[in-house]
Design a protein around this nucleic acid. Sequence first.
DNA 1: TATGAATGAGGATTCATTCAT
DNA 2: AATGAATGAATCCTCATTCAT
Lengths: 176, 176, 176, 176
Amino acid sequence: MNLLSKTKKKSLKPVNYRQKIMDAAIRVFARKGYNDTTMIDVARAAKVGIGTLYNYFKNKDELLISSADKTIETELGKIRKICEKQADPMDRMETYFIQHAMLLKENPHIARFLVSQLRQSEGFFERNPEFNPLRHYVNFVKELFETAKESGRIKDVDTKALAIMVIGSMDMLICQ
Amino acid sequence: MNLLSKTKKKSLKPVNYRQKIMDAAIRVFARKGYNDTTMIDVARAAKVGIGTLYNYFKNKDELLISSADKTIETELGKIRKICEKQADPMDRMETYFIQHAMLLKENPHIARFLVSQLRQSEGFFERNPEFNPLRHYVNFVKELFETAKESGRIKDVDTKALAIMVIGSMDMLICQ
Amino acid sequence: MNLLSKTKKKSLKPVNYRQKIMDAAIRVFARKGYNDTTMIDVARAAKVGIGTLYNYFKNKDELLISSADKTIETELGKIRKICEKQADPMDRMETYFIQHAMLLKENPHIARFLVSQLRQSEGFFERNPEFNPLRHYVNFVKELFETAKESGRIKDVDTKALAIMVIGSMDMLICQ
Amino acid sequence: MNLLSKTKKKSLKPVNYRQKIMDAAIRVFARKGYNDTTMIDVARAAKVGIGTLYNYFKNKDELLISSADKTIETELGKIRKICEKQADPMDRMETYFIQHAMLLKENPHIARFLVSQLRQSEGFFERNPEFNPLRHYVNFVKELFETAKESGRIKDVDTKALAIMVIGSMDMLICQ
DNA sequence: TATGAATGAGGATTCATTCAT
DNA sequence: AATGAATGAATCCTCATTCAT
C-alpha cells in the first residue's frame, strides 16, 4: 500500500514550478512586452501565487532573462539538431530556413518573444548590459553561412551582418 | 510702449510649442523608450511646464503617436523629394537606399525612434490599434519596388514583403 | 479689486504642506512607531494625498528624520530661550526640569516621539547611522550641568552621563 | 538494537526545541529589533525549520512574549538569588546594582533585549496589552528600595518611580 | 495660456503563516 | 513531529493626469 500510494502521488504530477512559471512568463512577455507585463499577470498565467514567483526568481528582470535564455537554448537546440543531420552546407542552410519559418508559424508567441525582446526599454538593458539572448542565435546562423562560404557555395560576404539581416527580416515580417 | 514691447516679443519668437514638444519627445522616446520616458522627462527636454504638454496633446499615447507621425512625414518627405529627382527606377531605388542609410547614420536617434517604436507593448497597440507609423514608410519602399518591377528591372516578387524585409534588416543592424 | 482678491486669497490659508505633513508625521510616528506607521497613515493624518508626501520628502526615512530634527529644534529652542532668562545656574537647571516636565505633560505625543525614536529598529539606524535627534538635547542638558558644576554648585560628575541618565529616567517614566 | 540506538540518541541529546528557539529568538530580536527580525532569521539562528517555530509558538508576537518572559525570569532569578544572600538591605541594593551592571556588560544582547523591547510599536502593544516583561523586574527593584526604606536607611520616596528611573537611566546609557 | 503642485491608481517586492509531505 | 514551498495581504514608491493660479 505504501508503494502504491507513493506511485500514485508521483504520477499525480510533481509540479515543476520553475518551468511552469517560465512557460507562462514567455507567453505573457511575448504578448504584452516587458513593461506592460505585471508580476500578477505572470502569476495568474502560471496559476501560482505571486510570492511563488519570488521563490524561483529574484525579481522581474531575472525572470525575463531566465525565460529568454531557457527558450533560446531549447528552441535553438532543436533546430540545431535537425540541421546537423544535413551533411551538405547548402542543405543545412535550407533546412535552417525551413525550421526557423516553422518555429515562427507554429509558436508565434515564442518567436515573437525571441525576436522582440531585443527592443526592450533601455532601462532594462542599462540594468542588464550583458543580456542579449539572440547572441547565440545570431552566432548559429553566422556559422551556417560560414560553412557554406567555405564550401564555396556562396559568395564572400560579412556573414555576421548577413545573419543579423536575415533574422531582422523575419522579425519584421512577423511583426507586421 | 506696451504695444511696442508686445510686437517686439512676438516678432522675436512666436514659439511653436507643439513643434517644440514633439522635437523633444522624439529625442527622449528614442533614447529611453516609451515606458521609461516620463512626461516630466519630455517637459524638461522641451523646456516647458508639464501642464503645457497636456495643452497640446491629450495624453502620453497621443504625444508618441503625433511625434512618430510627424517624424515619418518629415523624414519621408525629404527622402521622397530627393528620390523623385531620379527618373530611372533603378537609380531611384539606389538613391533611396543611400538616403535611408544616411538617415540612420546622421540621425541615429530618429532612426532608432522610427524603427523601434513598432515593437511597443501590445498594451499600447491595444489602446491604439490604428497606430503604425511605418505604414507610410513601408508603402513608399513598396512603391519603389513596384515601379522597378513594372519597368522589368527586377523579378516578380511580393513587393510588400520585400519592403518589410529590407526595413527589418536595417533595423536589426542598427540595434546590434 | 485686484488687491482685494489677492488679500482674500492669501488670508484663505496658503497651506504649508511641508509643515502640515511633519506635524501629522510626528503624531503618527509617536503613536505607532516607525515600522507600524504606513505612508498612508501619515497621508490620511495630514489630509493630503500619498503622492504629496513624496513631493516634500524623498522617502519614509527622510520623513522621520526631518520630522524629528524639526521637532527637537522647535521644542529645544523654546526651552532654551526660557532657561536663558535665568542668570543663576541652579535656577536655570530647575527651570529646565520644570519645562521638560511641562513638555512631557502637555505634549505627551511629542515627548514620546522625541524620547522613543531612539529605540527604532536597527534597520533604520543602519541606513541612517548619523541620525540621533537627541544629541542636541543631551548636549543642552550637559551644558546646563557643566555651568552648574563650574559655579561649584554641584559636585564633580560625568556631566554627559548624568544628562543621559536624567533624560532616560524621564523617558522611562513616560513609557510606564 | 533498535531500543539501544533509541536510548543512545535520547541520552545523546533530547533536543528541547522550545528552549532552543527562544534562545535564538532573543539573540536575533535583541540585535535587529522586532520588526526587522523575520521568522526565517529566527529559524536559521535556531537551526530549525520555519514550520517548527509554529509548532511551539502560535505566531511571531507570542514568540517575542515568551522569549522576553523566559529571559526576565531566568536573569532575574539569578540576580535575586545572589541578592538574597545579603542580609543587610543596603548591601542587597549594592549587590543588585553590581549584578545588574554585570548583566549589562557581559550579556549586552540580553540587556538590550530586556530594556529595549519596552518601546515596541503601539501596534504590538495594542495586540498584546498585557505584555510588560519589565514589570517583574521593576517590582523587584521596587522591593529592594522598600526594604531599604523600611530599615530607615533611605529617605521616604516613591519607590516605584525610583525603580523605574534607575532602570531607565541604565537603559539610556546602554543605548547611547 | 503656461505652469507645477496635488493626487491616487497601480506595480514590484516582502514576509508571516499554512499545510502537504 | 519537523519541514519548507506556496501563498497573498500589505507596503513603499512612481508617474500620468488634473486643476487652481
